[in-house]
């Protein structure tokens, strides 16, 4: 598989108020080919969204910084690129859809202006051509009467329509990589289904690589081919979707899948208590204390877990996990 996007050893650090430094992303690796979808799952505060910002090089500096690693887009390391080059990349090669479609659109401009702005900026289209492109994009995301809608303002659209406009904006320049950060959490399920269908269809047409950030394993199953599970800024497990769903290895992944009541076509009469993951995600200040960050919440934690950081280990074909349960024979580095 030739990777379009390659993230290697990515670490992001934040300066805290008391002068300490917190590693909110720690040695993250993954890669993604054109036309494929990678899901990133985890609870909030696991570094999912920070990963997206790092790829866009939008980590707020200060107090944050990308400490080390490489992010290669078609071979070019974005971490070495100039700020001017990054402005070309953002919106053009890599673009992003956010969770909240209302606040991500500027209420004082028409949606046509906002879609058009991206293409005028990146592709130097004239005002008229940009408007035509905007209409074409609105049609592509199945908005009825695009010629009319293009002159409307965000508040005149429903939540689902706004998210379609966001997608139209993100795809207007035919990016190679699309990052969708919880794109449907604010939407009703029937509208979410429409948005997912639309994303899949557009992805087939444009061959874009998609990173889908979500906490919903069902959404991952529908949309992605591969999954990365993150916890406390680290990748704890990575596998193809079906393997991950049927054979999760890391206790955190198993917890994430088992703690959610999944909709079943034929519900059983008996309903045993749900599996719980006790406690909460460590706060930013608690990161990087050594040892496996999941150990305090892990039912299977062993003596060494709070001390030594487990390495990423192969636990099956094309399936890795970072857990001492699977690399117990190796000594800590």
């Amino acid at each position: 598989m030739s990777a379009l996007l390659e993230v290697r050893g990515l670490s992001v650090e934040f300066d805290l108020k008391d002068g300490a430094v917190s590693r909110v992303i720690d040695g993250l690796n993954f890669e993604l080919a054109a036309g494929r979808t990678l899901g990133i799952v985890g609870e909030s505060g696991c570094g999912k969204s920070m990963t997206a910002l790092a790829i866009m090089r939008l980590v707020p500096v200060p107090p944050g910084r990308i400490a080390e690693g490489a992010i290669r887009l078609a071979g070019e390391n974005l971490l070495d690129a100039s700020e001017a080059r990054m402005r070309e990349v953002r919106g053009n090669d890599v673009s992003m859809i956010f969770q909240e479609p209302m606040t991500s659109l500027n209420p004082v401009y028409t949606i046509g202006d906002q879609i058009g702005e991206t293409v005028r900026l990146h592709q130097g289209l004239s005002r008229r051509d940009a408007r035509d492109r905007a209409i074409e994009m609105l049609r592509a995301v199945s908005i009825p009467a695009p010629e009319k809608r293009v002159d409307e303002y965000p508040h005149q659209l429903s939540g689902g329509m706004r998210q379609r406009v966001m997608i139209a904006m993100a795809l207007a320049c035919r990016p190679q990589v699309l990052i969708a950060d919880e794109p449907t959490t604010a939407l009703d399920v029937t509208v979410q289904a429409q948005i997912f269908d639309l994303l899949k269809e557009l992805q087939q047409q444009t061959e874009a690589a998609v990173i889908l950030i979500t906490h919903d394993m069902g959404a991952i199953a529908e949309m992605a081919q591969r999954v990365v599970v993150m916890y406390a800024g680290r990748k704890v497990e990575e596998a193809p979707v079906d393997e991950m769903l049927t054979n999760p290895k890391h206790p955190y992944t198993r917890g994430l899948i088992a703690c959610v009541p999944h909709l079943e076509a034929d519900p059983a009469l008996e309903r045993p208590p749900l599996m719980e993951i006790p406690g909460v995600v460590p706060s930013v200040a608690e990161l990087g204390r050594g040892g496996c960050p999941f150990a305090p919440r892990c039912a299977e934690a062993m003596d060494r877990c709070p001390q030594d950081m487990p390495p990423e280990t192969a636990v099956g074909e094309d399936h890795t996990a970072a857990c001492w349960l699977y690399s117990a024979t190796e000594a800590a580095a």
Binding site: P273, M275, E276, P278, G279, V280, P296, R297, A299
Partner: peptide, 8 residues
């Protein structure tokens, strides 16, 4: 059932 640990 696992009892949850309080954050404090």
């Amino acid at each position: 059932m696992t009892e949850s640990t309080p954050a404090v």
